[in-house]
Design a protein around this nucleic acid. Sequence first.
DNA 1: TCAAAAGTGTTTGGTTTACACCCATGA
DNA 2: TCATGGGTGTAAACCAAACACTTTTGA
Lengths: 250, 250
Amino acid sequence: MNQKPNVYQDLFLNHLSLDCVVFGFHDSQLKVLLLRMKRTKDWALPGGFVKPDETFEVAASRVLKERTGLGDIFLKQFKIFSDPLRSQNNPIVSDLEEEKDKGCIEWFHQRFISVGFYALVDFSKAEPTPDFFSDQCSWKALDEVDALMLDHTQILTKALETLRLQLNYQPIGYNLLPDKFTMPELQKLYETILGKELDRRNFQRRMLSYGILNKLEERKTGGAHKSPFLYEFNLGNYQKALQVGLYGGW
Amino acid sequence: MNQKPNVYQDLFLNHLSLDCVVFGFHDSQLKVLLLRMKRTKDWALPGGFVKPDETFEVAASRVLKERTGLGDIFLKQFKIFSDPLRSQNNPIVSDLEEEKDKGCIEWFHQRFISVGFYALVDFSKAEPTPDFFSDQCSWKALDEVDALMLDHTQILTKALETLRLQLNYQPIGYNLLPDKFTMPELQKLYETILGKELDRRNFQRRMLSYGILNKLEERKTGGAHKSPFLYEFNLGNYQKALQVGLYGGW
DNA sequence: TCAAAAGTGTTTGGTTTACACCCATGA
DNA sequence: TCATGGGTGTAAACCAAACACTTTTGA
């Protein structure tokens, strides 16, 4: 244990990291926020480490604040990735070698156990910002995502799976859509996440039956066709539905 | 960093622990496996640490093997508990002070981030076995559980909540019931977990419609009334239902 | 003025709920 | 033999899928 202290070791807990799958919705597509690593140009999920006085949730919020400028984001732990070999061959290490920062190399060579979070954010409000290891931070449509760094593809896949499952028993859309939105927009969101088309009229009936929407007087103009009504989420009921679920079940 | 090496530091990853909420079903009651701490007589969840070559899942299996004798247990991560203050005042420390084992005290004084697992096991096959810090390991009915050590009450509550949610979209019962069981027994299990009564006939129809049960020729005799049929789980369909869910949803 | 999008029903068929009835068993 | 639990069936209520018609809009 004769390694010299370094900034990571001093600031963060050993062994632990977190990775965020940040979903946004734009242009009728579900998109993910990705970082491009400086040297290898690999794409990776935004991630970070945990300070001694933080919970994982707080650490994830901090990371997302840095990457998107947004606070108060919908965030959910979905799985821990603890394969002992998962963080081998971290390309960040080679970045650091160029900078002769041996102390940090030790840090990045250790085994990391990573907590996966997924986040839902309003695409239009986020301002993607790269971190120290990356030269680019941008949105990618899901079908444009190639192989990611380390096990990040696996993390992304699992997040998407969880999101689809969640759709079956929890409301979704707040934090993914602007404050006011139309029913067709909400439907498009569902269709995009599920990857299939839904019946317009049945969708609307079902959605309204949940009681989580407020119908507004306004309509959205400017489209080439009949102007649709605007809706907003009824936050009280929305929160309740998040906890209790949409179906009674048993 | 001048502390002397100790067996924990050598064997396990720093900062990290896991806690298991082990559910069993007996006597029409849902029970949890608890340990009684040697000195303070506090009750606690079975837990443990992670070796450098283990995933969390493997570590949790190892712990459960030690506490119950059972392998191949249904195990599920449900949440990470990472409050910086959660592991303060660990009573284990005072046990160790009595044994003058200063090296280990350092270990237990560190901040722990714990991964919560819940497990479903066949009550009749488990052999509760205390660990080094406890003098007793036994099943407690849920309503007999008093305050637990540290934040373990909170962990237990969250596990139960997750279990109830799971009931709404996943099959349950395999690993909680013996290989062969009757429909009333299965129903009792559901009623116990949900904390409410269900209609006998509707329950049966619904259960059968899932296609995860095989009806056997045998009947269970010895009861004071009409002998009910025995069933077993259709493992293929059961596993599929675990992944896909019981309801189509959207 | 017209194609496309959006609002608003209705019909139909399956599923769930709430029951009733009969049968088997050991006390 | 009888109280109790268990197997099986059915009418009514409910809900969801499929589909039709009208209205509005900018090009």
